[in-house]
Design a protein around this nucleic acid. Structure first.
Length: 479
RNA sequence: GGUCUCGUAGUAUAGCGGUUAGUACAUCGGGUUUUCAUCCCGACAAUGCGGGUUCGACUCCCGCCGAGAUCACCA
């Protein structure tokens, strides 16, 4: 049987890291099994609809490389893929239930229903609407909610993650199928759509586990085959025990993107949060994820989101792309991350800077603060020099002497390469009888005034002879 | 409150009746001619509690405790 699954988000805002995982797993399942992934937009709640949210979802999926086989943009045999455009379909299916005596129009005003609920709470008995069914329901027509007519019975089913499940009649109730505004509820719409679209694997958060018996009753009443159910555990917020949500300040996937997190790292981290293949492998490409994915290794308890590990993984990916795909491949992804001052420099120069700094990056946006001195003369601050832990035992005149010797040595240097610079630096060390910590710190700080920088010979080589010497001279004059 | 789910170090996890309970992130220490980072080495650190079953339980069963989900004309 061909696997057909879907990602069915509501366009109510951005996609954050807590909910993008329910797109990743269906994607992996579909690809692993040569199946299909459908993207369906569940926009039946007009009050929560956010303009532009659909585009944001599509954009996020594209960035992560989660391409869908059917849905908005790409189309497919089951159009339309927006629930708001499928009203007629839901009404036709609702008719089937009405004709079978399994649905009824319910004109009861919300306040009255609320009264029933309070009454039950007061008596400490569970509130079940089926105990309050209206005596003579009218003919169903638009403007009146339509309810399912539940039969109190027990259900058993299998959840691919949670295992064997069962529920008694006490959870079955007359849920709303079609709202007063004519739009279907999620509870009804997803069943109809999944049936129409031949979806046979439903992956969604565990919060739907408790509602499953009610869905089972509807499948049954409609004579539909049950799909496979896959409940995905929640991603928990960094603190507390709640699922990660926007109110915890859950960042959108887009935000991480602009902060210089690579799509590969994001996909890798999120896929492995709550799933593993049983090996000790940590870094997975998308293809490796597809290859090793399996439902039975999805964790059944919530996993806490840990940004520190995401950033570690991002560093791993930055280095991996550099060493395996090449400096240009990494450079191609850095365009919007350079400091303003780098604007007029050549690609060649920036590529050179990137190749000596890349293994220090946790995110691409670190480039902004870490490479400034390659593009713009740093502000000379003598205190930084004299307060440095290696330099503070040197007197100002000693510093001046060392700088002069360095300038003389480098001025005479014929060839300005990493190797010749290293040789010259070593000679200076011998001639001045200074420790590397002292001499190198002095030179490093004089040309960069940065808290850290790449190996000294590489920094000087990249900066070039002219700039290196002019910066050293400028510092020597300021002492 | 009813119903359901979950419970290995701070975090993510491996384990599937017999292990010195493994790995990664984090933390701490050390190494690689300066710094920061990478890389390498090392240290710290866990089976929620109580009963069973068993020669033996993290692993199977029961109870408790703790955490979460759900009980909407939201999805």
């Amino acid at each position: 049987m061909k696997v057909i699954t879907r990602f069915a988000p509501s366009p109510t805002g951005y996609i954050h890291i807590g909910n993008v995982r329910s797109a990743i797993y269906p994607y992996l399942l579909a690809r692993k099994n040569g199946g299909r992934l459908i993207l369906r937009i569940e926009d039946t709640d007009r009050k929560r609809y956010v303009e532009g949210a659909t585009e944001l979802i599509e954009d996020t999926l594209n960035w992560l490389g989660l391409e869908w086989d059917e849905g908005p943009i790409v189309g497919g045999p089951n159009e339309p893929y927006f629930q708001s455009e499928r009203k007629d379909i839901y009404h036709a299916w609702a008719k089937k239930l009405i004709d079978a005596g399994r649905a009824y129009a319910d004109p009861t005003p919300p306040e009255v229903i609320e009264g029933y609920r309070e009454e039950c709470n007061k008596k400490k008995v569970p509130f079940l609407y089926r105990n309050f069914r209206p005596e003579n329901p009218p003919e169903w027509e638009p403007g009146i909610p339509l309810r399912f007519k539940a039969e109190p019975k027990s259900y058993k089913w299998t959840d691919e993650v949670m295992g064997e499940m069962k529920a008694g009649p006490e959870v079955l109730d007359d849920i709303i199928l079609i709202k007063k505004d004519g739009y279907p509820t999620y509870n009804f719409a997803h069943i109809v759509d999944d049936a129409e679209m031949s979806v046979n694997y439903i992956m969604r958060g565990v919060e739907y586990l408790s509602s499953t018996p009610n869905y089972l009753a509807i499948y049954e009443a409609l004579g539909l085959d049950r799909p496979h159910f896959v409940s995905l555990p929640h991603v928990l917020a960094p603190t507390g025990n709640k699922k990660l949500g926007k109110r915890d300040g859950a960042k959108s996937v887009t935000e991480y993107r602009t902060d210089g997190v690579l799509a590969e790292a994001m996909l890798n981290y999120l896929a492995c949060l709550g799933w593993n293949d049983g090996t000790e492998k940590e870094i997975y490409t998308k293809e490796e994820l597809i290859e090793s994915f399996s439902l039975d290794r999805i964790q059944n308890s919530g996993a806490r989101y840990n940004e520190v590990k995401l950033l570690w993984m991002n560093g791993q990916w930055i280095r991996r792309i550099f060493t395996e795909e090449g400096a240009e491949a990494l450079y191609a992804r850095t365009r919007e991350f350079w400091p303003e001052s780098a604007k007029d420099y050549s690609d060649e120069y920036k590529l050179k800077v990137l190749s000596i700094i890349y293994d220090r990056l946790k995110t691409l946006s670190d480039l902004k603060s870490m490479t400034e001195y390659f593009f713009k003369d740093p502000r000379i601050d003598v205190d930084t020099l004299t307060n440095n832990k290696f330099l503070k035992k040197l007197s100002e005149s000693e510093i001046e002497t060392l700088l002069k010797k360095t300038i003389a040595k480098l001025t005479d240097l014929k060839e300005w390469t990493a190797d010749s610079l290293q040789d010259a630096l070593n000679e200076l060390l011998a001639e001045t009888k200074k420790k590397p910590a002292e001499l190198f710190s002095l030179i490093r700080l004089s040309v960069s005034f940065a808290p850290f920088s790449p190996a000294l010979n590489l920094t000087l080589e990249t900066l070039g002879k002219e700039i290196s010497l002019s910066r050293l001279n400028a510092v020597a004059r300021s002492i």
